[in-house]
Amino acid sequence: MAQATPKSMKKTKTVQEVIVNAVLIFICIIWTLPTLGVFVTSFRDRDSVLDNGWWTSLSTPSEFTTQNYSQVLAGKDYSYTKSDGTVVVSRGDNMLGAFLNSITVTIPSVIIPILIAAFAAYGFAWLDFPGRKILFGCIVGLLVVPLQIALIPILRDYMKIGLNGSYLGIWLAHTGFGLALATYLLFNYISTIPRSIMESAFLDGASHFTTFVRLILPLSVPALASFAIFQFIWVWNDLLVALVFLSGAGQTVEVVTQRLLSIVGSRGQDWHLLTAGAFVSMLLPLTVFFALQRFFVRGLMAGSVKG
């Protein structure tokens, strides 16, 4: 290799490129297969789902149906025959209301912790006050606390102040559980903003608040967006926190994951509905991810790359 001429180097390079691409494509196929299977299944009817593998249906695309999606979105029908022969049909829950609820829960649960964490990150990075290091150390330490241990105590606190089953309650809960990571990530970013930029702002007589709002927030958009993706995915997909803090409010304030769980029918496993429901629930987080993707990398990395 050391004696390689430019020509043979070029040749090895092409060979390398082919291998690299082949391996990469192979990995990508493996990565997609599980999701593809669910996607295909969501268009098949109940009996054929239980009868044979989803890949067999690829040869008969005409049998695909969108019935599952309409059942998931509009509500599943239950029918049974009464003793006098009449058929009673009742409509189950639909996913549309749950979708709106999830949005109501998710958006503030993403923005509030970002706001609070950004303020805190700025404070830890650029303000001098006693106990700064200890406090920050504690916050990083809290990264490890499993949120399960907080559920019951917080539930009892909420009972005293009447926050159970309210949106504010679940926003604050998500804020509390996401805040440690948010502060940690945003600190990574904000602390690496060159000191000179800040000092010029202070020379102009700006307060910390102004500097933060006018200068730091816009500069931190990549970091904010990357955390936003994280928190969005986490809140949207959360089941446990919703189960605990929204439980008292009844089915009218159910989120998508809760609804997905109830689709697992009482009659065996309704694979055809489950797969469709799973896909509906994935749509929004995937969209958000692809929309904000370009920020993601820059924001997350800023701090740790330098290190």
Binding site: I152, M159, G165, L243, S247, A249, G250, S262
Partner: peptide, 22 residues
Amino acid sequence: VIYEGSPEFETQILIQTEAGTP
């Protein structure tokens, strides 16, 4: 009379009583 069923009933009922919203 509104009846609601949950697949997580056994956990949920405990949470709801703890939460004061049974």
